[in-house]
Amino acid sequence: MGLKQKFAKKLINNSGSLKYYKNQVDVLTKKVERLEKANDSNNRLFNTIFLDYELTPSPLLQSFRDLSLELLRFMDNVCMKYDLEWMIEGGTFLGAIRHDGFIPWDDDMDSGMMREDYNKLVDVLPEELERNGLNDNIKINFRQRNAFVEGATSFLQLFYYNTLSGGGVDLTALDVFPYDYMKQYNGEDIGQKYEDARLKFYHDIVEIGDYDTTVERYHENMDLTWDKTNHMLNGVEGPQGPKRILKLKVFETDKMQPFKRVQFGKYEFPGPNDKDYYLKTYYGNYWNIPKVLTFHQRMGRLRKYPGIVEIFENEIIKFEEINDNFE
């Protein structure tokens, strides 16, 4: 009998230790089963509450939503003026379809557009902000990606700050993500190629310092094109990827475009053409509330500021007037 066999026999014969560890495994297994049942029960409860009841938001939450709608409305006004195609996407579009507006726990907004229109928007936004007296309110930001390369910037973010009480508080925000057309796509896994191209993109944006050249190199690395094709995918600057919170998706262009307007709160905004296709691709069974939720914590920060509801109300009045008279 070899040494391994002797050790195994001795371990098995040590019935006290074996029974102890077996009992511990049984105890932990039962705890896991109870936790899973509790989680399933809570999930069913949240589905009932959020999908079958009409919940009334607090004054602060309602004010946040009203100002956020005006930011979307401003985006829509600018895009219509310059003939740019855009869409609400991600959780914002999911909220429009499943909740007729904001997802109850969501406190930011997502939008997307093809890269050519995205670049045009970046060019015209400063002029439109100045023309409409919003320079002190809306700040143009390109999210930092220091985790990759120091100084690398990413997708467009629009933050709305208050000015009537000294400023310094971002009241709401809109993320704008670029999309690209693929020359050819046969259903293959492009995850690693995408991640490699992402690292190269962020390296080039710092080393070269020229956005247009960096994008052209990225298009070459990923075999992308400016011309409309049968497939489109999220731009490399976004949060999607094979190892990220949001999975990388390749979409059929004719299921996404032309963008179709949908009701979101009291306004309509463009979204993916085939809502069922888009939401199933991203979320699977999108009618159910997920068991794990993601929070951005903006509402938690806003609650700390004295007079925050009044601040919102003043900014809403100002922004509504700008949108009502937009030219």
Rank of each mutant, 00 (worst) to 15 (best):
Q184M: 12
E207V: 13
E188A: 10
F201I: 03
T225Y: 04
Y194S: 11
H231T: 00
G241F: 10
G166T: 04
D180Q: 02
P239S: 03
H219K: 15
G166M: 02
V206L: 04
L164G: 12
D210S: 04
K200T: 12
T214D: 00
A197S: 14
Y185T: 04
L164Q: 13
R198G: 00
P178Q: 03
I190G: 10
D175L: 10
G168N: 03
R198W: 08
N234D: 10
Y218F: 13
P178C: 05
Y211L: 14
K228Q: 08
F177T: 05
G187A: 07
I208D: 12
Q192F: 14
T214A: 05
E220F: 11
D204P: 10
K200W: 09
M232I: 14
Y179E: 01
H203R: 15
Q240N: 15
Y194N: 10
N221A: 15
L246C: 14
I208P: 00
F201K: 07
S165P: 09
L174N: 06
Q240I: 08
P239R: 00
D175F: 00
V169C: 07
V176K: 08
G191V: 01
F177M: 05
L233I: 07
V169G: 06
T225K: 05
G238H: 02
S165V: 03
M222A: 05
T229L: 01
I245E: 15
T214L: 09
Y179Q: 06
G191Q: 06
Y181R: 02
K247C: 00
D212L: 00
Q184P: 06
E216P: 03
V169N: 06
H231P: 04
G191F: 02
K243Q: 11
R198A: 02
D227Q: 14
Y194E: 00
E216R: 13
Q192H: 13
D189L: 12
A173K: 02
G187Y: 04
K243W: 13
L248Y: 08
D180V: 07
I245P: 02
V176T: 09
D212I: 01
L224S: 06
M222Q: 08
I245H: 14
M232T: 03
G167K: 06
T213H: 02
Y202T: 07
D196H: 13
E220D: 15
L224T: 03
W226H: 11
L248S: 10
H231L: 07
H203T: 15
D170P: 13
E220N: 15
N186F: 13
Y211A: 08
P242V: 04
D170Q: 12
H231G: 03
I205N: 04
L233G: 01
L224R: 00
